[in-house]
Amino acid sequence: MARILITDDAAFMRMQLKDILTKLGHEVVGEAENGHVSVSKYQELRPDLVTMDITMPEMNGIEALKEIKKINSSAKVIMCSAMGQQALVLEAIKEGAKDFVVKPFSPERIQESIEKVL
């Protein structure tokens, strides 16, 4: 069981992901609607894993990933992206993201990604 922080600007996406993660037996310790909130919640909660949307207002997922990596260089972050964001996904992997999942989410793919990362 992992302690997970979910980051996505869309509330329904956070809800969907939380539902999948909870059913898979993980604990969702926090939710963030943008990169700024994600970074501060990461500092506060120290989760085992962060799911990070790429495209968000205020601070995007790649900027937030960089900030989280400054806090903890071994932080485990899985990027979540829509189709057609390959360039951003590649940049995120280069910046230290451990994996990426394409929306819409399938529980099987989420589980596979978590097992791979942890």
Rank of each mutant, 00 (worst) to 15 (best):
A64Q: 01
L24D: 00
K98Y: 14
I110V: 12
S113A: 14
E108S: 15
K76Q: 10
M15R: 14
A32R: 02
E112T: 09
A92K: 02
P104I: 09
P104N: 13
K66D: 07
V28D: 02
K23A: 13
R46H: 09
V39K: 10
A82E: 03
I6H: 04
M59K: 11
K69Y: 04
A82L: 05
H36N: 13
M1R: 07
M56T: 05
G30V: 03
S73G: 06
F12H: 05
K18L: 02
K70I: 07
D48F: 07
E67N: 13
S73L: 05
M56Q: 10
D9H: 03
E115G: 11
I6T: 02
I54Y: 00
S73N: 09
N34I: 04
V89N: 01
G61L: 00
G35L: 00
D9K: 11
E31I: 12
V50P: 09
M79W: 04
E27N: 13
L49V: 08
A92T: 02
S73H: 07
P104V: 14
E108V: 15
M59I: 07
Y42L: 03
K69L: 03
K41Y: 10
M52K: 11
E95D: 15
E67Q: 12
K70D: 11
N34Y: 00
E67R: 04
V39G: 07
L5S: 10
Q16K: 08
T7Q: 03
K69I: 01
M83L: 10
L65G: 05
K69V: 01
T55V: 15
M83F: 04
K76P: 14
R46I: 04
I4H: 01
V37L: 07
P47C: 08
A82G: 03
A92P: 09
P107M: 15
G25K: 15
E63H: 10
G96R: 01
D19T: 06
F12I: 09
P57E: 15
A82I: 11
E95V: 13
A92Q: 09
E58V: 10
P107V: 10
